[in-house]
């Protein structure tokens, strides 16, 4: 008999980002902000250079005017298998769980910020202030996600609340978890399906199939962080591939 503990650890969650499909519309950024109770990046927070974005769309310009092209890369926590943020945490507030996720436990975090210094992708964010929402947005907060208070580090959680809900509801309704049952806020919001979320342990899942693509690369490959977020390089109309480490 498969125990509950084994059933949970039989997943290896991951994401594949097809950069070729990304239009830079920022829908993922907004969806993430709404789903995960991320503090508002207001103007004064921006001027302090302390803005929050668990997922951000980086923009690069290619070519010379007038043949200039904008390229976009959505970047979130890469959920590295060899995560540089994990060994530096003195209280084990961030660790790698059995489902291939780098998780952040808010009630353990003491706010040393070592992990943010260790992260080469700049995807960890520290709450320097108590988050404040305008009265009109207070009923918008997601009850499934903790509101992080001052002094807590936070980052992309792969929408673990949605993973938990998906696994739970599949068990409740008595059917197996199908590929596509669970989506993160960003993948569900993406209008071009540039972001795909799934289980690498399921051989027929979309992410497993996309991971075999020749265009596959990982960010900062030379650091050997072994991310669970994979990128598929953009193919230019003229035939050349842009991005990746070639």
């Amino acid at each position: 008999m498969v125990t509950a503990a084994e059933r949970v650890s039989s997943h290896k969650w991951g994401m594949v980002v097809d950069v070729d499909r990304c239009t830079g519309c920022q829908a993922c950024v907004m969806a993430c902000q709404a789903e995960n109770n991320i503090p508002l990046s207001t103007e004064d927070i921006y001027r302090q250079k302390r803005t929050f974005a668990w997922i951000r769309v980086e923009r690069y310009w290619y070519g010379d005017f007038p043949d200039v092209k904008a390229r976009f890369i959505p970047i979130m926590c890469q959920h590295c298998e060899n995560a540089p943020c994990e060994p530096v945490c003195p209280v084990f507030a961030t660790y790698h769980n059995t489902e291939g996720m780098n998780v952040q436990i808010y009630n353990r975090c003491v706010g040393t910020r070592y992990c943010a210094n260790g992260c080469p992708y700049n995807v960890r964010f520290f709450n320097y202030w108590e988050p404040v929402w305008p009265v009109s947005l207070r009923n918008q907060l997601n009850p499934d996600v903790t509101v992080r208070s001052r002094g807590i580090m936070e980052k992309c959680s792969f929408c673990v609340q949605r993973i938990r809900r998906g696994v739970r509801e599949a068990a409740r309704d008595g059917h197996d978890l199908q590929d596509g049952d669970i989506g993160t806020a960003c993948t569900d919001a993406c209008p071009t399906n540039a972001l795909v979320f799934g289980d690498y342990n399921d051989e027929n899942s979309r992410v497993s199939i996309m991971a075999k693509d020749d265009r596959k690369y990982t960010l900062l490959d030379a650091l050997n962080t072994d991310p669970n977020v994979l990128y598929l390089a953009q193919v230019d109309a003229t035939g050349g591939a842009i991005g990746g480490h070639d």
């Binding site: 125990t3 509950a4 503990a5 949970v8 660790y95 769980n97 059995t98 489902e99 996720m101 998780v103 436990i105 808010y106 009630n107 353990r108 996600v145 903790t146 959680s157 673990v160 609340q161 938990r164």
Partner: peptide
């Protein structure tokens, strides 16, 4: 009862 004890079972 062999239920998951990973932190993210309850804390997220």
């Amino acid at each position: 009862n062999n239920a998951p004890t990973d932190c993210t079972t309850c804390h997220f």
